[in-house]
């Protein structure tokens, strides 16, 4: 029982910013504050994903052949881009843009890491963005 309690993780609702604990293996939960359904699992994009919003309390990985086209991308657990990410606004804790990545859009993150060779097409970068308030989530 003690072990299970330790595996809980702290997440922050991406709609109302309320913080609460969820099980380590939880995929979706309802926010106890705003009662909205939330995605808390890690998302891996392997192919084209054209959506309006892609939001999760977990992490997002855009793989080499993955392509995300969205208005808003938000992943509190961190974002790693190996393929293509085109979005109007991207919000995350730690953002890693690898050498093969193609990035287009604004970036609001607590930290960003860009490897040489990455293509970044005219985005507005705000790093660190303390308004998100997610930088301490990764430390817990």
């Amino acid at each position: 029982m003690g072990k299970r309690a330790q595996r809980n993780r702290l997440v922050q609702c991406y709609l109302c910013r309320h913080r609460f604990e969820v099980g380590a293996r939880a995929m979706t939960v309802s926010c106890p504050e705003c009662h909205k359904p939330l995605l808390v699992q890690d998302v891996v994009v392997k192919t084209l994903q054209a959506v309006k919003k892609l939001q999760t309390c977990g992490s997002l990985v855009v793989q080499k052949k993955g392509r995300v086209i969205a208005d808003l991308v938000e992943a509190h657990g961190g974002i790693e881009v190996i393929g293509t990410l085109h979005a109007k606004s991207v919000r995350g804790s730690r953002v890693r843009i690898t050498r093969t990545a193609n990035w287009k859009g604004d970036c609001h993150a607590s930290s960003v890491q860009i490897e040489p060779g990455a293509t970044v097409e005219g985005g507005y970068f705000h790093v660190p963005d303390r308004e998100l308030g997610v930088e301490d989530l990764l430390e817990t």
Binding site: S111, V112, I114, E121, G122, G123, Y124, F125, V127
Partner: peptide, 11 residues
């Protein structure tokens, strides 16, 4: 990681 950057970027 840890660098602070505010502004537009074209790479």
């Amino acid at each position: 990681e840890g660098a602070s950057f505010t502004g537009h970027c074209k790479i």
